[in-house]
Design a binder for these strands. Structure first.
Lengths: 225, 225
DNA sequence: ACGATACGAATGAACGTTCATTAATATCAC
DNA sequence: GTGATATTAATGAACGTTCATTCGTATCGT
């Protein structure tokens, strides 16, 4: 292990890995209990060390929250950023965006804690700006797709800014009430939300009656806190 | 040891009035800054007394939050509870429910703090059950109307449980991003959300293209935190 | 004078954070 | 290789502050 390359990056590699592990356990706790209900002592216990040691990896508690949110947003954006420029079927792009977002949100242990919203009031101005600008990127892409759909005449003329926030609202809040069940999977949920949104804005009036015959199946997954 | 409800008997009628005033200033603060960012000192200063005095009116800080939320929920429910039994045009009932809810939510100084969601994690089990059961009442009424609309064949066959939470999600989150402006009033917003929802579930395929020509006007009111 | 109302001061707990120190590991001169 | 010397990683105990809440006492309306 006397490789010269390891001298520089070797020590750092270990730290980076440990940082990720701290973030992983912090993420779980923050989503479950909310920022204010989780102390540094909790974070330390979850990771397996003393509170003081966490300060070798993060400057403050807020820094942990920030890094966690940044990673999460990055994941969501990366999966859809190609739609900003890429021309294509807007309907399919909308379907993908919704599905991707729903999956990202529900891939974490349920919260019901509105962590993201609370966080914006906690982060420093600098950090909040970073997160907010990432959220803006997400909404910009969504609006771009909505506008594309209008140009393709597959969506009705609509205020894409408004429709964007409405769709995002439905998706965001899924984590408050949705529990995957037999007959009510995350994929199905995403599909239903997509169809709901599409029904509201689609131009050609294909009856989508059949799409809604899910009574009693999807209902199982709905269990608000 | 604050006694509960000694409104009558020899107790001064002023007590009840002062309690209301404390609640009023507390409500403003809680919605603006969130529960954790508001201390008893802040509540006392806003009302105009010392922190200790608040304990003559409420047993705990949580009790203030609870009473406040209870009043708020009561207001919302009272305005729509007649739809639980009353037969009538489901489309108009849905329009009324959405409008009523939007107005209730946006009648307070903006929060962007997800107070309601956070509160559910703060309240004692007993108090949370009260609030949750009120929320359930709201959702039950909404579902009843959605079912009525299906029976009247004005709504598509749909899972009213799912559609209910989707609609409620859109409405609830308005407080995160909507600012009334010239050309973007609360009433217009409520109407647009109603039309969005109706477009998704309505049975007769009346093109509602014209309904969406609001571009650039409603957009002004959209300003997330 | 008496109870309702308010106050100032104090309490104990919890919080994020800092600090001096130890244990372990890598680096380097010889 | 061996011992001296940095560097890193982690610790346990405390720090100062803030918090909701309690206590004893004074004030006020009647």
């Amino acid at each position: 292990m006397a490789r010269s390359e390891l001298k520089r990056s070797g020590a750092k590699a270990g730290t980076h890995l440990r940082k990720k592990k701290i973030l992983a356990s912090a993420r779980k706790l923050f989503w479950q209990k909310g920022y204010h209900s989780v102390g540094m002592r909790d974070l330390a216990r979850a990771y397996g060390c003393q509170p003081a040691n966490l300060y070798n990896y993060f400057e403050t508690k807020e820094a942990i929250l920030f890094e966690m949110l940044r990673e999460e947003m990055e994941r969501i954006i990366q999966s859809i950023e190609r739609f900003e420029e890429e021309d294509g079927d807007a309907v399919e792009q909308l379907r993908f965006i919704i599905a991707s977002h729903v999956k990202a949100i529900l891939s974490r242990p349920r919260s019901g804690k509105a962590l993201f919203d609370v966080a914006l009031g906690i982060l420093s101005r600098r950090n909040r700006n970073v997160i907010v600008s990432m959220r803006d990127t997400y909404e910009r892409i969504l609006r771009k797709v909505l506008r594309r759909g209008q140009e393709q005449k597959v969506f009705l003329t609509c205020d894409e800014k408004l429709v964007g926030v409405l769709i995002a609202s439905m998706v965001t809040r899924t984590k408050m009430w949705f529990h995957p069940q037999k007959g009510a999977t995350v994929d199905e949920l995403a599909d239903l939300i997509f169809r709901f949104a599409l029904g509201a804005i689609q131009a050609d009036e294909t009856p989508h009656d059949a799409l809604w015959r899910t009574k009693g199946r999807m209902g199982k997954g709905i269990k608000p806190i």
